[in-house]
Design a protein around this nucleic acid. Sequence first.
DNA 1: TGCCAGGCCGGGT
DNA 2: ACCCGGCATGGC
Length: 216
Amino acid sequence: MLKEYYETLFSAYGPQHWWPGRSRFEVIVGAILTQNTSWTNVERAISNLRREKLLTLPAIRRARPSRLAQLIRSSGYFRQKARKLKAFANFVYANYSGSLTRMFRAPTQQLRHQLLAVHGIGPETADSILLYAGRHPVFVIDAYTRRLLERHSLASPSDSYEHLRSLFERSLPADHQLFNEFHALIVHVGKNFCRKSAADCHSCPLRRFLPLATLP
DNA sequence: TGCCAGGCCGGGT
DNA sequence: ACCCGGCATGGC
């Protein structure tokens, strides 16, 4: 079932070249900054950090939280997110000598548990880091994914994050490239056809999968 | 002009 | 194990 969704989306849109980011660390920063925030607001924050040479692990670790907060202001929740960036940097130093390469060599489940213990890293952020920065085969469940599943009666609002993640991971081969493309494609259709209001699925390529009763 | 956007934390039940 | 208020900006 989900495999057919993927085939349909890939035929319609092709490869998405995700995640936008020039380095693994930049991808991680983006994952934290985009929490409940539109990507355009995050882009400004990231270019500010780049301009100030703060898009590296050691630089984030050294920077004062107030300075960080000022530079990422446009991404919203900026004091919280400044603290989260520091917490992640400290985590990598404390556990992996400041090396992302070492960090991502850890077994997927072990690293996932460690990431979830870091302040500011919840399930979606942990999985985005694992998949998009680390190429580990975990499926990311975000607001778009959940909305798609609910619109298609494949999930209900009470389903937990872990339940939805396991739905994807048991239905598909554990292939990071596949998970990457699939999730990116879900976000793409979500942005174009599946917003909260203005739900016109008329030209959505997934329209044929909609249950008859829910067709608009 | 209010509502929304690729969540998460901490305290309460 | 859930539930909820707080966190904050920029675009429409």
